[in-house]
Amino acid sequence: MFDLYRPGTSFLHRAPAGGKVLALFVLGTLAFIVDDIRLIFAGLALTLLLYPVCGLTLKNAWAQIRPTLWILIAIFIAQAIFNTWQLGVFVIARFGLLLLLAGLLTLTTRASDMIDGIERGLPFLRPLGVNPAKVSLALSLALRFIPVLAQITREVREAQRVRGLENSVIALAIPLFVRTLRMSDDIADAIEARGYRP
């Protein structure tokens, strides 16, 4: 399974996925309500402390921030110019805290556990007209399709390279879509042929 999970045995690794998602939601909301920078910094320090506690390195923590570094810098500069630099520090500290918290969830939870957690939570959505069986079928199909599509994309690109069409987006996309749509019709037929009635 290709996900961002880092194996480990810490309490966060063992905690149920649903609980962790709920905790992230609550903490994330709190971070947006709190307007005391000391609390944000305390949260940042605690979250950073949790990385080594969970057997993760500070490099893992840095990897959560790095992709958005330029955005953080741009936000800080804009705040420093249009408001005050103190507000700039506050906004990017809160940002960093949220990214690190969400990173903890992602790094300590297998995507498959997260999906199991979602499937367990789905029956609660039944009164809203959500059919849990359909949602979990769609989830597992999508995950299975991603590597298949990557493979078909490679095949089509190779075929079009032979024709000298490797730079034409349209020549790549149309056969890709037609092949995958045909495949999805076959899969739907196969699922129904096996008596699947969600």
Binding site: L139, L143, S184
Partner: peptide, 13 residues
């Protein structure tokens, strides 16, 4: 079923 497969397909696409 076809709708579900299509939804999964376009998410994956």
């Amino acid at each position: 079923t076809r709708d579900i497969v299509m939804i999964a397909l376009f998410a994956a696409l």
